[in-house]
Amino acid sequence: MDIDLTLASPSVPVGDDVTLWRYLDFPKFLDLLASKALKMPRASSMEDPFEGVMGDGAMSATLEVQSANRAPSYWRHAFINKLQRESLWWRDRTYVSCWNAFPSENAGLWRIYGDEKGVAIRTTWGSLRRSFAGTADCVTDVFYGPVSYRSAETDFEIPPTYTDQYFVKRQEFSHEKEFRLMAHDESREHDYRDTSLEGLPAFATLPCDLNVLIEEIVISPRLGGWVQKTVEDVSRRYGGTWPVTRSNLYRPPPREIHRF
């Protein structure tokens, strides 16, 4: 299946020069090198159990709209539960690739995702976009864009579609400043009565040219300097031409300053 990229929120343009980071442990980095593909896990396997689900505020707003339309209480109850069931159904059939939109590396994200066993990919949206090559497995339409962080209780904006729900997260996750790729598995019949996960892939796979995708590999600041040579050697064995550097985040200041 050819990959068709669509901006999730046309009112929020994304420039090719937006810097993106992906923090990952070394086994996942090796898997990326070997497969030459981005693997997007199911939304239901991600840490946040509210991925793709409306918050209380949006649910309240939805019920108020139905009430204003004079829908009886039993119908409103059935309607909101229908939306909830369908949101949870799509969580098992939606795939997400998470990146972080910071101009430079982030100490907190090193702690969470990389720390003493990780590397970070530095790229730009333009390089990521141009890197896609070949055809995907179970997805075709891939949406992209920054994530908006809001209060689940006080945000009364109703997401227009199930797709839009994946570009809104609770404000407690705002430290991530996430930029994501998201796609639904549309290779199967949409039957909300079928809740079986049998045959559903755990990942959607997007083949890519790694030399276009990766602008730099940065090694965790908590790893020894000798790791840089190892990562360089492994990268070259898989045909990688990108530079490999070690983060100097915790390099101590000079004991003497030679400036005039």
Score class of each variant (00 low, 15 high):
L7F: 14
V12C: 04
A34S: 09
F26H: 10
A43K: 00
S35N: 13
K39R: 14
M40F: 12
L20W: 14
V14Y: 12
K36N: 12
L20D: 14
P49G: 07
T19F: 07
L32F: 14
P27K: 11
A43F: 04
Y23P: 00
L33E: 14
P27C: 10
P27F: 13
L38K: 04
P41R: 02
W21Y: 15
S11N: 11
S11H: 12
D16N: 11
A43M: 05
K28F: 10
P27Q: 13
F29E: 11
P10Q: 15
D48A: 02
V12I: 04
M40L: 13
P27I: 02
L24R: 09
D16W: 05
P13N: 07
L7T: 09
P27W: 15
V14D: 10
L30P: 11
P41A: 04
S44F: 10
S45Q: 11
W21D: 04
M46H: 10
P27N: 13
V18T: 06
D31N: 11
V12Q: 08
W21R: 00
D17T: 01
S11Y: 13
G15V: 00
T19A: 04
P13Y: 09
G15A: 08
P13F: 09
L24T: 02
M46S: 07
F29V: 01
A43N: 03
E47W: 13
L33Y: 15
P41C: 04
G15F: 09
D16M: 00
A34R: 12
L32C: 10
D31I: 01
P13G: 04
R22P: 01
S45L: 05
T19C: 03
F29T: 00
P49R: 08
A8L: 07
L7I: 10
K36S: 12
L32I: 07
S45I: 03
V18E: 08
K36W: 14
V18Q: 06
M40Q: 04
F29L: 08
G15M: 05
